[in-house]
């Protein structure tokens, strides 16, 4: 894997994480993350759309003039979302009932049009697909993390109803803390905002510490050579 692609992957998963760094797509990140399973399902559905949209946009970027690119992208994305929506309705019906409207709303998820505009329209097909996958998985990771924390604090369970999404063989993921009443607030919208806020603060603190450590190491190395 070339250096560029490695950079793309790292950006998508961590450095430019859709939710935790770009602060995009906060509507689904707040609305559906009442459990880890919902977050995972929403994230994977968005990833599928994101990869396909990035690929198609990169393929047609030379034929579509820049004046009409936005309507074309929107039509592409809307088509892909409809496909995912119908597919989930057919094969993951229980999860579809939970996520419901939010699957259709992927069409106006700013992250997807954002990646098409910011990356895919300027990149090769391979790089666009890798970017879509990395961004999508970063999004999935953030949504699953928010969902798991809210679910754990709010209901005392982890991956409740995971078998709806992943099939009966993944029922072992479902855990529950015995005798825990749950803090209802975490399931409600304020809990989502609070968890996101603490995650953002945590990520920034972590990055600052890592940077400080890297600076220190670099300084020492310079000191040794000088």
């Amino acid at each position: 894997m070339s250096e560029n692609l490695r950079r793309v992957v790292k950006d998508g998963l961590w450095d430019q994480n859709v939710v935790l760094s770009q602060m995009l797509a906060l509507c689904p990140a707040m609305a559906v993350t009442t459990s880890g399973t919902n977050g995972l399902g929403m994230g994977l559905a968005t990833t599928a759309v994101l990869v396909a949209a990035n690929m198609l946009v990169a393929m047609i970027r030379h034929t579509v003039s820049s004046q009409v690119r936005i309507p074309v992208f929107v039509v592409l994305i809307a088509t892909l979302v409809t496909v995912v929506d119908m597919a989930m309705n057919a094969w993951l019906h229980d999860l579809y009932k939970v996520l419901g409207l939010f699957i259709a709303l992927i069409v106006c998820n700013c992250a997807i049009l954002g990646r098409a505009e910011a990356f895919a329209v300027k990149s090769s097909v391979l790089a666009a697909v890798v970017d879509g996958l990395a961004m999508g998985l970063g999004f999935t990771g953030a949504l699953t993390a928010i969902g798991l924390i809210r679910e754990l604090l709010g209901a005392g369970t982890l991956f409740a109803q995971a078998s709806n999404l992943l099939g009966p063989s993944f029922a072992f993921l479902e855990m529950q803390i015995p005798d825990y009443g749950g803090a209802l607030l975490m399931i409600l919208p304020p809990g989502g905002f609070a968890v996101l806020g603490f995650l953002l603060a945590g990520k920034r603190t972590l990055e600052r510490r890592l940077q400080a450590r890297a600076d220190k190491a670099a300084g020492r190395a310079v000191g040794v050579t000088a």
Binding site: A183, L184, M186
Partner: peptide
Amino acid sequence: VALLVSFPL
């Protein structure tokens, strides 16, 4: 308020 909403009982 957070306590009241979280733990009504």
